[in-house]
């Protein structure tokens, strides 16, 4: 072997590190995505199920039919709501544990993680017991005479949103907590030393430095709620249709595999666009992180 080929081989050896990931990702992630996309270009037939074709008809339908547009609007609206509310709830909590829960931090973070270890189905049944017309919440409010008739929460949008905020709250807390934990104590002191009030410290120091955490929180909760199947299906209102159950229904009840694939591709495109946009947003909002 000549020295030249040895050198050029050496240049490629670092790529060996990605071989295991590529072996898993290519056949089990990338290829199915290609198949999904290919399926979305097929045609659905009531009798013959999916018929091979090469047509954009499903995309045209999904993007022009008010029914599907409503579906996207519902899903994006609900996901946005869940992302914003979960992040707003998570923010002060994360600040509190990052600053004050010094000795109990392990316990608190464990308590935050904890629900992630419990199957979502179990949590959903818990919420069903709480939210039902004759459930715990209504029984309590009726007994205390806050209500005359029970609140309709279960199988309504409200119940689904409550369940989703609960489900995704840990995903909002952890990145925020992480971002805030990284803000040195000295910066709080420096801000106060220069004359900032406690709320000024949060406004001028904690908030801008936690922007990357906020964006990750919003991303994770938004993407989670956007693609959630279980909660819309089990807690939600069938009148308020969400994307993931709709895809499932297209594929199973309607036997419209191509349309289901189309909706899935559109959801994927939307999430990728969202990640790109938020990446850009972070860059714009945090110029100091990339300044060299």
């Amino acid at each position: 072997m000549t020295p030249g080929t040895a050198a050029s081989l050496r240049r490629w050896t670092p790529l060996l590190w990605i071989v295991p990931a590529a072996l898993v990702l290519l056949p089990f992630f990338f290829l199915p995505l290609v198949l999904l996309f290919r399926n979305s270009l097929n045609r659905d037939d009531p009798m013959l199920l999916m018929v091979p074709d090469f047509t954009a008809i499903n995309y045209i339908k999904a993007l022009s039919d008010p029914f599907y547009l409503q579906l996207f609007a519902n899903t994006i609206g609900a996901a946005l709501f869940v992302a914003v509310i979960a992040t707003i709830i998570a923010y002060p909590f994360s600040y509190f544990i990052s600053r004050y829960a010094r000795r109990s931090i392990g316990l608190v973070v464990w308590a935050v993680y904890m629900p992630l270890f419990v199957s979502v189905i179990v949590r959903v049944f818990g919420w069903m017991i709480v939210l039902a017309d004759s459930g715990l919440l209504n029984a309590m409010l009726l007994k205390l005479h806050f209500l005359q008739t029970p609140l309709r929460l279960l199988f309504e949008v409200d119940g689904m949103l409550i369940g989703m905020v609960h489900r995704y709250l840990p995903l909002a807390i952890l990145p925020l907590f992480n971002a805030m934990k990284k803000i040195p104590d000295e910066l709080h002191r420096a801000s106060a030393n220069l004359g900032a009030t406690p709320s000024g410290v949060i406004r001028d120091v904690v908030f801008p430095l936690s922007v990357p955490g906020i964006v990750i929180s919003l991303q994770l909760t938004f993407a989670g709620a956007l693609s959630d199947f279980v909660l819309p299906q089990v807690l939600g209102s069938p009148r308020f249709r969400m994307l993931a159950p709709a895809i499932y229904a297209e594929a199973t009840t309607n036997l419209s595999t191509a349309m289901a694939a189309t909706l899935a591709v559109l959801m994927l495109v939307f999430i990728i666009a969202l990640l790109g946009a938020s990446g850009y947003l972070v860059k714009r909002l945090t110029p100091w992180m990339t300044a060299r």
Binding site: L187, A190, L194, A196, T197, T286, W288
Partner: peptide, 26 residues
Amino acid sequence: GMVFQAYALFPHMTVRDNILYGPRVQ
């Protein structure tokens, strides 16, 4: 006015904004 061991400069502010911060909040 304090000068901290690791300086505690605000990483998200330019040098100018770091210096202006005290007078501004006061």
